[in-house]
Design a protein around this nucleic acid. Structure first.
Lengths: 384, 384
DNA sequence: CTGAAAGCGCTTACAG
DNA sequence: CTGAAAGCGCTTACAG
């Protein structure tokens, strides 16, 4: 019991036991400021001043400074990051926490955001530490707080299903930015895109091609992004006087294989009904799964049926034919998350600055999976 | 001049200037061991002993220890990572350096390895810091050594084109593992897979389906992986008494769009020649680009022509039809890199332990893009 | 068996 | 204008 508590409290990395100091011999020890000073015949402090170019450096003569710089270069001196961090309370590193399913589409989505995050991090001279969580429930609650132990200065959460309790466990005032957060966490900025408008625009795009019987294969029920897209879908139907049919809204999950199965299931349940003109999928990975299912049933895309996705991840350009989809500016969102986080880290964390959530615009990207509405009405074929 | 040198020497994160200590008020300062001790009415050292469960903890009475644990929990105490690192010379973090093109296929390849790296890192209670490089030349040489300043305990390099000079710039004895390294760097373990056999096996697979006129759209010339695959391709032809034709070996690059263009170029240059039975592409992304080109020319896969890739990244399962390819155990390679690195970190770095490179087996994965050799001989169509 | 001190590597504020 | 000291938060070896 007491043991357990101790385990909980200590950082996971030492598993409750103090790690013995490794016996490194001199040869493998990194060069220190003292080494540089010794080599240049000055104190460590003088070396520090010369190398950092602080105002105190003015007192070091040009000749001495040159000697110091030369020694530092020769010895390949690098200021120790841990020592600096201890002093400055800054690791110049932030964390990126995400649940990385094995599933494709989450990866593609992650990859795009990650590109943005990394490029902005490099720009700010920060490094990025990735925390791969198993889920946003127990695992996040158990491990996330432990990461906020000085190894990172702030945290970006890809938090589609993160709840308020989890956020509450983190140190108060810890700089946090969420992307596609499921809630507006107090004190955290959220970045998302206009999902409702995305659902609206892509549905309207399909309607503009003559489609009227549009199946929406939606993402995971209850997730904010899913519900907003459904809302947009329904608004577009209403706007164009198409009656919403409950049988044309089918919830599934953001996963290629699950979406493939869900498509087959829907077709099985609706045998003999009129074939949908088009299928609007919750994201690109789902659309690819849906395309596989449609193709298995002997239907051609876009001749027999149109299919669209959401996100505009790299998947949409690798499918054959390429996928018509809704572009979320994912790379930009990743960059923005870093910029916002940097601002929060630099600012005084005590002034509670409630920033309103950032909502980015979306854009329909027409590619090859949408065609005109088929002339000939067909029924849903029976599945062997 | 002197300024420049100073800039070079200081860590990039502070850009040559000392960062002023941020004035954090007490409220946002993290709980320290002293705080815990004070709350429990003992010294910081006693608190440390109780929380760490070291042998010295035996001297702390059960009641006192419980008081300390309670205080620590109440105050949400987390041992400061920087302070620990300073003492232990361990950040419990390693770096993963890679050039992350915007191009698709490198990302897919990276993603698979990254999954393996992250899962093994979690298993070892380590965290992973990602260093995104622009290239393996100037950028790697300039920035990589600066990362070895104590913020990471070791480095995994995805180094397809890294040269020996770059490795030489890193601190000697710094634990390094390379994946698909282009050279055997002294002191670094390299992990790769049996590319030669992969090229051989997939070519033989095509031959077994009756194909004889096999175009090899190879990856970037000069990269070890590329050349090994070419070698395997040629060995398979030879084994089956098919004369190698220089016109059927076309070097390109590991990039979807470049491969698409290269395919079109090859077809343009070979108009009127017999159509290849099959195309063996340097990796999956190239295969997808090739599929797009082939499809643009009005040819069907696999009825008119077969296409195969290499790697078995997630791309191969998202194309329609799904791609026949060669499986590299990328996730496993990522895991293995971490395991090896951990062993190097834990071991005494002074004993130069030259480990022989690790070569993993490959496996042909038959999917939907390979069919029997078309009965009817066709010629390369002309491109509009 | 317990407490005070030393030290990891660095920088800053403070004596000389 | 320069040098020695203090301190970031922690742990370990060493006096009492």
């Amino acid at each position: 019991m007491q043991r357990n508590l101790a385990m909980q409290l200590t950082s996971p990395k030492c598993s409750g036991f103090a790690v013995p100091r490794p016996s490194k011999s001199k040869s493998s020890r990194a060069t220190t400021l003292a080494d540089v000073g010794r080599a240049a015949g000055v104190s460590a402090m003088a070396a520090s001043a010369a190398l950092n170019g602080t105002k105190t450096s003015s007192r070091i003569s040009a000749a001495t400074r040159e000697r110091i710089l030369k020694a530092a270069k020769r010895l390949r001196y690098r200021p120790n990051a841990a020592a600096r961090a201890l002093l400055q309370r800054r690791m110049h590193t932030f964390g990126l926490a995400a649940v990385l399913y094995d599933a494709l589409e989450v990866n593609h989505y992650f990859l795009a955001l990650f590109n943005g995050v990394l490029s902005a991090a490099t720009h700010h001279d920060q490094t990025t530490t990735v925390f791969a969580l198993h889920n946003w429930e127990e695992d996040a609650r158990e491990r996330l707080p432990g990461f906020c132990d000085g190894r990172i200065d702030g945290l970006i959460l890809l938090a589609p299903t993160c709840d308020e309790e989890t956020i509450g466990l983190l140190p108060s005032h810890f700089p946090i930015v969420t992307i596609h957060g499921n809630l507006d966490y107090p004190g955290a900025v959220n970045i998302e895109c206009d999902d409702e408008h995305g659902g609206f625009a892509i549905t309207e795009h399909l309607i503009s091609q003559g489609h009227r019987r549009i199946l929406h294969l939606a993402g995971l029920k209850g997730v904010r992004g899913t519900e907003c897209r459904v809302k947009g879908y329904r608004r577009a139907l209403q706007r164009h006087k198409i009656r919403f049919s409950r049988s044309l809204l089918h919830y599934s999950d953001f996963n290629q294989e699950i979406a493939r199965q869900a498509t087959l299931t829907w077709f099985r349940q609706n045998q003999g009904q009129p074939l949908p003109d088009a299928i609007f999928c919750g994201n690109d990975g789902m659309a690819v799964g849906c395309m596989h299912a449609v193709s298995e049933m002997g239907l051609r895309i876009p001749d027999d049926i149109s299919v669209v996705g959401f996100d505009d991840t790299s998947l949409s350009r690798s499918s054959v034919p390429q996928l018509t989809t809704v572009k979320q500016p994912l790379v930009q969102m990743g960059r923005m998350a870093v910029d916002l986080l940097m601002r929060r880290i630099d600012s005084n964390q005590d002034e509670v600055q409630q920033v309103s959530p950032i909502v980015l615009p979306i854009e329909v990207v027409p590619r090859g999976t949408v065609g005109p509405r088929p002339k000939q009405r067909r029924l849903v074929p029976s599945i062997s």
